[in-house]
């Protein structure tokens, strides 16, 4: 808990997301930048997870 208290009091938020929200309007679709970034990251991470080679290949035979 003391560690948490220290971190908590030192940094409230380095980046303040509390201002007026920013939104993307695209036809009837409206989405906040926050959600768009999260969903975009999900797509990117999914693609990377499939595309990037997995390290421990080629273990020995059973």
């Amino acid at each position: 808990m003391p560690v948490l208290a220290m971190i908590g009091s030192l940094v409230g938020a380095l980046v303040d997301l509390g201002g007026p929200g920013h939104y993307v309007h695209w036809g009837f679709i409206q989405i906040s930048w926050g959600n768009l970034i999260v969903i975009g990251l999900m797509a990117i991470v999914f693609i990377l997870a499939i595309a990037l080679p997995f390290p421990h290949r080629g273990g020995d035979d059973q």
């Binding site: 201002g19 929200g21 939104y23 409206q30 989405i31 906040s32 926050g34 959600n35 999260v38």
Partner: peptide, 25 residues
């Protein structure tokens, strides 16, 4: 004002610029 109304897709939004319940899209 916070973009939270039903016709603003508000259900998945959060106050300010935080991501919200995107899974409710």
């Amino acid at each position: 004002h916070q973009h939270l109304s039903g016709d603003q897709w508000g259900m998945m939004n959060e106050t300010g610029n935080w991501p919200g319940q995107a899974w409710l899209w």
